[in-house]
Write a protein that binds this DNA or RNA. Structure first.
Lengths: 247, 247
DNA sequence: CAGATCAATTGATAATTATCAAATGCCAAA
DNA sequence: TTTGGCATTTGATAATTATCAATTGATCTG
């Protein structure tokens, strides 16, 4: 079921780094390795949480749905896990998961997971740390949604990702703009107009490329806040979000 | 430091229910019991997380702040804990905590907490469950903010709390309206007008009293969703929110 | 009880954001 | 290389939400 090259990448995740080797092997042995085509809904929100998912290749969009509407909550890129909390609580998934491209996923049965953190204290601590980080990440998101308007969210997103990209003066958006719009809680039209208007404040957008033309000005506009944008705590950046940009 | 009557109430919390008695006593012995006057900022966002807080009496508002604005993220009522995640990650608080009235708080040093879940496996499991529930709770909040407009959020709040209040035809709002408005991500003026407009859809508001006049109609408007409003999973209702209404 | 204080409401207006429709541009499949 | 299908952009307009100002109402205090 598992490819021989899969183990080490998973083993390096914070979640699995510290557990006993025998226990890790135990989890891996029980798990499945699957490949999904693009655009496939691999999880529907409301389904029982049977498996912890680990993205090995490709990318997965997590979306919330209600009353025929939907919004992007996160995009998960390799190598990372998703829907840990649902597995732990043995509760229905709160989000739908859909592949954005051809994607390879490792699936760990939720029951094995739950019995494992009762057996392996190091794993339990890792789960605690992961969940706490994820929780804080969503709290930041909620703060951003409630305290900032859409223009401020766009500007802070662009600046933050420029910093994540190593402070480079330009970088590529890692996702389609309509997806980014949904992630930021706005319409594609609104995002498009907002991006144009931000040219007056120090960022230029050329297709999928973001060019910081006046970092000082943009920073003054954004008023970055460690308690929302989390620039200080790299460890906290685990959890839902949008992929790290490439220069 | 601790009052003799404090222990049992804390012991009954999910978080502490299953741990070894000796370990619980150990935590309690290291903790402080303090009373704060109304309107006191007991925690400022950004402060290092030194203590897990447990509200024993009174109530505490958790607010997010940015650029001179602020929004209510939750109101915590007895007996429950708050800012667990910050303590675990040994990271700055993401929210400011302010007493709404005279409030008694038990403070457990974060360092004791962190060493305890490494020693007591049952406690570790309880922390895992608590954090997973809190995480899911905030994800629901984020979904609500992004998928619903303010009128829909108000309506769903009113219906949900009527159900929490045991399906009673009328109940009291547990909080001031300006606070509710902030919690729902809108202005007090907007909330006031929205409440009035909802009289046409099955809820009437008389001061702080909510009267469901046409549950069918209101339910049809709200389109309650277990994956946002969490009516099915009582266990999930741990975590940030607004207090349970009284009939 | 009067006065002060603050929450809540109401009205008028402005800003923000969404919707609808059409045009443009980009990319991949044929 | 061309063509079809989308994503994106742009324009026009409507809906939603916020802001400002003034009033009303409730509560607390001296």
């Amino acid at each position: 079921m598992m490819r021989p090259d899969t183990d080490p990448q998973i083993r390096h995740l914070h979640l699995f780094r510290d557990m006993a080797q025998a226990n890790f092997v135990n989890l891996m042995t029980a798990s499945y390795d699957q490949i999904f085509p693009p655009g496939l809904e691999m999880i529907r929100q409301g389904d029982p949480a049977d498996f912890l998912h680990i993205v090995m290749e490709g990318s997965v969009e997590l979306v919330g749905q209600w009353a025929g509407r939907e919004c992007t909550m996160a995009v998960v890129r390799p190598v990372s896990t998703f829907i840990l909390a649902a597995c732990i609580r043995d509760a229905p998934y709160l989000m739908t998961a859909r592949t954005l491209e051809r994607t390879r996923i490792v699936l760990i049965p939720a029951s094995d997971l739950r019995s494992m953190f009762r057996r392996d204290p190091e794993f339990a601590v890792a789960v605690i740390n992961e969940l706490a980080a994820c929780y804080r990440s969503v709290v930041r998101t909620a703060k951003s949604l409630k305290l900032r308007n859409s223009r401020e969210r766009v500007a802070s997103y662009l600046l933050r990702h420029s910093i994540i990209a190593g402070g480079a003066p330009s970088y590529m958006l890692g996702v389609e703009k309509r997806l980014l719009a949904s992630y930021l809680g706005m319409t594609p039209e609104n995002l498009s107009r907002t991006l144009k208007s931000l040219e007056a404040d120090g960022v230029k957008i050329d297709g999928a490329r973001v060019i910081i033309t006046d970092r000082t000005r943009l920073t003054a506009l954004v008023k970055p806040d460690a308690l929302i944008d989390g620039l200080d705590a790299a460890a906290d950046s685990i959890g839902p979000g949008l992929p790290v940009p490439q220069v």
